[in-house]
Design a protein around this nucleic acid. Sequence first.
DNA 1: AAGTGGTCTAGACCACAAA
DNA 2: TTGTGGTCTAGACCACTTT
Lengths: 238, 238
Amino acid sequence: MAKLEAAPLYQKVTDVLIGRIGQGQLAPGDALPSEFELAAELGVSQGTVRKALGSLESRRIIERRQGRGTYVAETTPESELYHFYRLRHADGSCATPEPGTELIGERPATGVERALFEALRPERVFVINRARKVAGRIISCETMILPAELVPGLPDHAPLPNALYAFYQETYGINILRAEEQLAAKAAGNDDARKLGVHPAAPVLVVERRGFDIADRVVEYRHSRYLTDDLSYRIELS
Amino acid sequence: MAKLEAAPLYQKVTDVLIGRIGQGQLAPGDALPSEFELAAELGVSQGTVRKALGSLESRRIIERRQGRGTYVAETTPESELYHFYRLRHADGSCATPEPGTELIGERPATGVERALFEALRPERVFVINRARKVAGRIISCETMILPAELVPGLPDHAPLPNALYAFYQETYGINILRAEEQLAAKAAGNDDARKLGVHPAAPVLVVERRGFDIADRVVEYRHSRYLTDDLSYRIELS
DNA sequence: AAGTGGTCTAGACCACAAA
DNA sequence: TTGTGGTCTAGACCACTTT
């Protein structure tokens, strides 16, 4: 016999809900139907719906509050800052960034970029270059690259807010749920040294990030260079 | 009325099992009783035991295999290498390290160290200094500090194996489940430059790590310096 | 065939939030 | 008071592994 019905029921429920959220049928902040309503609608028991909702909650796609209901997760500037923004002072407190310079451009995607955004294979990309300060001193310069069709009219929103991921979500319904990063210590080099106001041989922390959306597609590539003389990049491995 | 019975039943079941594993009553590799046996023994339903086991599995404290049973997780050198060892080649493959120099010492704990290992407040600590190579070239030097009472007779095991966390577990029953890290790019400085064979101004990736055991106590402090000219430190944020 | 974990159901009761 | 999610139970059946 061929192997049919391989996926468990709760997985199908999960997929249905991810589909609705991904398509914008359920927007961030919206309430989901109650467990019993979903169960009736999808023809499964409440326990099965619960298991699916639990899985979505653990992936921070939804939020559940006893007595209130279940809601599509919103990326608030505060929560975003603490999830993917890792820069901290020596005492462990968040090194809140201030806006510096910003530059937004559009150009055709290179072959490398089309391979990177393989699920979307964009013709064109937007490129954001920006620098940020902490306590008045420039501490980072970053380059963000996004498929143009995902974020139409991006330059119209300049200057972009500090918490970019919350902005992507509010404006374009793009929800970055996880990221893969490669870190290295490098000499600044001439360009970055000028932007950061340091010597070209000064060590900088170079972070390459790929940001993945709800469907696990790469939707943002980010190349950041940080000055970590007084700050550190704090992460947790588990 | 005072707030009693605050913790849900499955949480208590989880705690009981963590206790048994933490005390060595159940050692890595051991099979747990079946769900029904645990349920009968603890006076709860099988579903409640399942929820507790699911929580332990998601924290990688146990492993469950359909048809086989439930086992206390073993940190194999392979799995450890990929969980907490983050160094990768440019193509994404694991940069398998080779042994370099190694030096183990013992000394009284400083005040800072007693504060760091606050749950244990050790009188003495072991200090491991070692360098490692990739493709014949020294790429890291690391300092590990552990409370002496946790790892008695540590120097007798020299030279220590490459996968230290698996060694801690097999030899001392210490299971490091998660870690917090602070990363920064710094100039090598004279000492590290000599150890790593680079110029004192060369950029190195400095990683400070606190390793937490099953009871969420800090059991290892690690200070690593990596050369990231050809390698990168790869992590996932979620 | 026997025993294990994996899925699914149905229903009870509790805790919390809002009207 | 009503409706929501949170906990807990009891039992059915399935899938996998070992004997």
